[in-house]
């Protein structure tokens, strides 16, 4: 099954599906994340991001399909996966009755690869008080403790499930700095999901957009940004568009203004658009990741 993916894949999902009764939460999701890359998983609420990550971590059984991390099948080699993956969940469920020092001591003994020096550095950098109980920590401090526990054993793969949701900008920045530090050697693979597209833009080499459990797009971030354009055409008086070019992910006609978001945009695509439609003027603009994301989702929902 792994033969369908490049040999250098750190994470491989093949037809991963999760159903609850008749509701399909993740629908035949297939994708591959190369080793050493940073991959952003984005999607609206309920898109299936957390479910996908939980299946990847072996915390949830898929209805069908398979997931492999570093070549290990999650269903059968879950322990090998857990040894080599650092995971930061959306909601941290660290033992609330333990003190920070106790949590660190507890987790440390579970990993052969635990790095004491890195752990001490992170404790200092995140200003975590070892004597404070987890239940007395702020949400941001718990998230930082979660990140510390996830990276102090020097995992090959780091999985972050909306790790900074609900955090103030300063804590978010500290957290992301920690993540960036973790990937500084360039050997670690990171998969993270987030609603904050600025963070995704900053961190991710490639992004995938999920909508209602389905993969809408999976591309290199820079290529996606470079090739996706918003085209605004003013139609001739009394005319309607005749045909949209290939690669339209979303479009809207408001009076004479025809707005289109086009992926894999090129001069040739623009030429065809002009030739085939009664257009007076046309403007082309770059889009940020947030607009691209919104247009993919709106386009997807309009189709369905």
């Amino acid at each position: 099954m792994s033969g369908q993916f490049p040999a250098g894949s750190a994470i491989e999902l093949v037809g991963l599906t999760k159903r609850y009764g008749t509701s399909v939460v993740v629908d035949r999701l297939s994708l591959s994340v190369p080793r050493g890359s940073t991959f952003g998983l984005i999607g609206p609420n309920g898109a299936g991001k957390s479910t996908t990550i939980k299946m990847l971590m072996g915390l949830l059984a898929p209805t069908s399909g398979s997931a492999r991390v570093l070549g290990f099948d999650v269903a059968t080699r879950s322990r090998d996966v857990r040894r080599q993956v650092g995971y930061v969940p959306e909601t941290h469920q660290i033992y609330r009755w333990m003190r920070v020092g106790e949590v660190v001591g507890f987790v440390k003994l579970l990993y052969d690869s635990w790095d004491d020096r890195l752990c001490e550095d992170l404790l200092d950098r995140f200003a975590l008080d070892r004597n404070k109980r987890v239940k007395h920590l702020s949400k941001g401090a718990i998230a930082k403790l979660g990140l510390l526990l996830a990276i102090a054993h020097k995992p090959e793969v780091l999985v972050l499930d909306e790790p900074v949701s609900g955090m103030d900008p300063i804590i978010r920045e500290e957290f992301l700095e920690g993540v960036l530090q973790a990937v500084a050697d360039g050997r670690r693979t990171i998969l993270f999901s987030s609603h904050n597209l600025d963070d995704v833009r900053r961190l991710a080499d490639s992004v995938a957009i999920l909508c209602e459990g389905r993969l809408v797009v999976h591309r290199d971030t820079d290529a996606l940004l470079a090739s996706t354009k918003r085209v605004t055409a003013v139609l001739k008086d009394g005319c309607l568009p005749r045909g949209a070019p290939e690669g339209v992910i979303w479009q809207r006609v408001a009076r004479r203004e025809w707005s289109l978001t086009i992926t894999d945009f090129s001069g040739e695509v623009l030429g065809r658009l002009k030739d085939e439609n009664p257009i007076e003027t046309v403007t082309v603009e770059d889009l940020g990741l947030e607009d691209i994301f919104k247009d993919y989702i709106k386009g997807r929902r309009a189709v369905e």
Binding site: G58, V85, P89, H92, Y95, L110
Partner: peptide, 14 residues
């Protein structure tokens, strides 16, 4: 009950 089982579940012990 306190969901710490989820924390334990993604740590290495079988």
């Amino acid at each position: 009950a306190d969901r710490s089982a989820e924390f334990l579940a993604y740590l290495p012990p079988s």
